[in-house]
Amino acid sequence: MAPPTTAGRAGNNLHLSLGNSRTLLDRVLTLLAIGLSLFALFPLLSVLYMLLVRGGELLSPSLFTELTPGAGMEGGGIGNAVLGTLIVVLIASVLSLPLGLLAAIYLAEYAGESKLGTLVRFAGKVLTGMPSILAGVFAYALVVVTMGSFSALAGGVAMSVLMVPTVMLTAEQALRAVPEKMRMAALGMGATRMETTLRVVVPTALPGILTGVMLALARAAGETAPLLFTALFSDYWFEGRLGSPIASLAVLIYNFSGSPFPHLVKLAWAASLILVFLVLVLNVGAQLIIRRPQEF
């Protein structure tokens, strides 16, 4: 091939060489960036590895069907804690989703930049950053003290306090992202504001809203602090009484991991694995909803 006429000026070496300080710096920084990215993955991967190795040991169907054993006993499972976590999350959802979603509708569709809207939005942002143990204190004062006992309900209230701001703010963002022309289309058809919101804006924003809900659920399901002095713990199955203490994975891990009995520590590892798996499923679910092509 003929040498290109636009070749470098005479004397310029066009070959790649690590002797060139700029090339060398480029390579070093690139490697450093890759290395540090991998390093950032290290905690997550090592936690997952330990969970699989230590927690996987006890993995069996009976883990989900049997009650937590007493101190010093062998066997048993964490069935009551798995069920308990699901029930507390369900209570929290029933309490927080209507509240959070309706507040989001108010903020996005009605409040605008009004004083009340600004205040609620600000309060929501402050609440998302609130230490979760304070949610527990709040539920303790509100439910445990007034009802006179630790209870599943108190645990649900504590968790819902954590969920409401997340649900509200993410749902508001999702609703605001709906193009104005769709609102105009509905209003132009003679829809009322609420019909426009419920029939057009909310369905269009649904993927975004669901993502926020799942992230809020994932966060709440993994919280220990708010449950410690609200839902407490129970070695028995949930018997339909919301006024009684209830088991949960998070509190089980907290209680058993510090136990002197090796079997209980193993159960804590298994519970950790299940809890991380649960949270992971919720997070991946949220990701799938986000990535779903916005056809509808």
């Binding site: 769709m182 509905a186 057009v200």
Partner: peptide, 21 residues
């Protein structure tokens, strides 16, 4: 005004179908 708009329809500059079927 809602009743007015039910009798008097509108088609906008930008096509604005809803994100549904």
């Amino acid at each position: 005004p809602v009743a007015v708009r039910r009798s008097i329809g509108m088609v906008f500059q930008q096509p604005n179908p809803f994100a549904t079927s």
